[in-house]
Design a protein around this nucleic acid. Structure first.
Lengths: 218, 218
DNA sequence: AATTGTTAGTAGCAATTTGCTACTTGCTAT
DNA sequence: ATAGCAAGTAGCAAATTGCTACTAACAATT
């Protein structure tokens, strides 16, 4: 049997297969809190409960593309920091059938969230206290928060949560929220000095000293 | 329609589904090198080439269980450090059909590898130079190495690569291989001091000063 | 015009960690 | 004895982190 023959005869429907979905944890920072987008379920199961937005993986799209599609279809967003998180495979995680969920997380500055989506964000702290979240999505959110918490210190993901132009007090606040602890101003600035570029601009309108506006270097 | 009715009528075969497999990156350290288990493919596709051991995910097993099964069926190993790595979903990663692969990596001390498996390990450095590895498995191996390299500094995974009883020069060597750089003896010992317990035993048989034997604390 | 309140931003030092060199210890083989 | 060799320790310099206190620049109030 040649390879060609083999491939022609291969019956890919021979075995029963699980379904594969992508679920998206879309994080932002608002009101000095880490928040996540939740959608209300319109169908069984968990009708009326809140869940992460998700899509089934189509045969002709990669996982990354599924995640991007979810991001666009469910939140109207493009060109956002997006990274695979973990794949969940418990047998009973969906009562309909066996569904394996590849979770992704995305980070978006509050300023980029469309008006239509504003209402759908909820603080992670609160969500983790609740027990009425659909599926295993609360666990996914917790896991996502842990991932960011780890990565913030050795990557630049914090910049994904801030607009193109930002002040250092803003940026520091992002770091503090993600890490869950205060940082020292002077040390923080030394640390990130090589990642930022000052602009000529200063903030205005506040009733105290204005802050210099920076951009990410490169 | 009640939830029960809905679930009864739900047709889970309505859509075409990808297959889901688990591929295993089994790392060990031998000859002062990071090595990986590869199996020779006996079937199309990539017949004769080397690949990571893998299994299809069965409907009645979780992903972790699939990974453990692969570990046992393909390497005869039980109770090994095992962690999910990443899920690979390129459209053409398998020429037979759409297969989504959930990769796991495992860490095992060289001393625990059964005789029958000894021959199947190959140095990661070499593998990454080659271009005759089946599927996208070379990329998976590279990704696995990156993951360990990151985790070694803020977790205890290095202990998974060493027997229950070990010497500090042994352990330090493991860290050095994983990190890809030399460490300072005295500093290394300060760092891990709270993670280890000395035994009464010393090594013997060497023609120089014997080394104290330790165990992991807890 | 000076004072107060508030946040932005800088100085500087103590404590800890890391980088590095040199030493001492305990074994075997000459 | 002593030479060779790896195990293990001492200790200091350099860099990083923890922390306090300062100065700078604005608006609002006196």
């Amino acid at each position: 049997m040649t390879e060609e023959e083999f491939l022609k005869n291969y019956d890919s429907t021979e075995f029963q297969k699980p379904s594969v979905a992508v679920d998206l944890v879309l994080f932002t920072i608002r009101n000095e809190q880490l928040q996540v987008l939740l959608t209300e379920r319109k169908q069984y199961p968990f009708i009326g409960k809140q869940a992460l937005p998700g899509v089934f993986v189509q045969m002709e799209e990669t996982l990354d593309e599924s995640a991007q599609r979810a991001l666009y279809q469910k939140a109207g967003l493009h060109d956002i920091y997006l990274e695979q998180l973990y794949t969940w495979g418990a047998l009973d995680r969906d009562p309909r059938m066996r569904i394996i969920s590849v979770s992704y997380y995305a980070l978006v500055p509050d300023s980029r969230i469309p008006d239509s989506e504003q209402e759908k964000f909820f603080p992670v702290e609160e969500i983790l206290q609740r027990n009425d979240i659909a599926f295993d999505h609360r666990e996914i959110i917790r896991y996502g928060r842990e991932r960011i918490r780890n990565k913030v210190s050795y990557t630049d993901i914090a910049f994904s949560l801030v607009p193109e132009e930002f002040t250092l007090p803003q940026l520091q606040k992002i770091y503090e929220i993600l890490l869950g602890q205060k940082l020292y101003k002077a040390n923080f600035r030394k640390k990130i000095a090589d990642k930022i570029q000052p602009t000529e601009k200063l903030t205005s309108g506040s009733k105290h000293r204005p802050s210099r506006i920076y951009r990410k270097k490169d």
